[in-house]
């Protein structure tokens, strides 16, 4: 990867549980998509993010018990898994998409880690 080029990250998250701060995205070009519930991130949205040039896509889901729409985060996880299978099938690295379980203490740190460690790259 070109060192100068900052990786592009698209983050989907539920607006009920998460407040963004610009600093958490240091080191990458981030785009965020706020959803009323993470379950609304359909598989097509995730793929479209890649089509729009994202190197990596993150879906931030609420803890399963904490989801306002009870099954929302479960669905979101299943969609991410499904998109992973598609990426594998077409020869892209399925690690380019991940979900992280939101935890008010840890989430910011987690995102930072991921970006800094270059963990997810298309």
């Amino acid at each position: 990867m070109n060192i100068d080029k900052k990786p592009k990250l698209t983050l989907f998250h539920c607006l009920n549980s998460f407040k963004e701060t610009s600093s958490m995205f240091d080191g990458c070009q981030a785009k965020t998509v706020k959803m009323a519930c993470s379950s609304m991130t359909k598989d097509i949205h995730l793929l479209k993010a890649f089509e729009a040039g994202a190197d990596a896509v993150l879906v931030l889901v609420c803890p399963e018990k904490g989801c306002r729409y009870s099954e929302g985060s479960m669905r979101a996880k299943k969609r991410v898994d499904y998109v992973k299978t598609i990426l594998d099938d077409i020869g892209m690295d399925s690690r380019a998409i991940e979900y992280i379980q939101h935890d008010s203490q840890k989430t910011t740190g987690l995102i930072k880690d991921i970006i800094q460690n270059n963990d997810i790259r298309a």
Binding site: D43, E51, I86, D89, I90, G91, M92
Partner: peptide, 18 residues
């Protein structure tokens, strides 16, 4: 409709990659 969209997107990504 949904499956058409997902398939189209996946195919575009795949062809682009190749």
């Amino acid at each position: 409709e949904d499956e058409v969209a997902v398939l189209a997107s996946a195919l575009r990504l795949s062809f682009k990659k190749k």
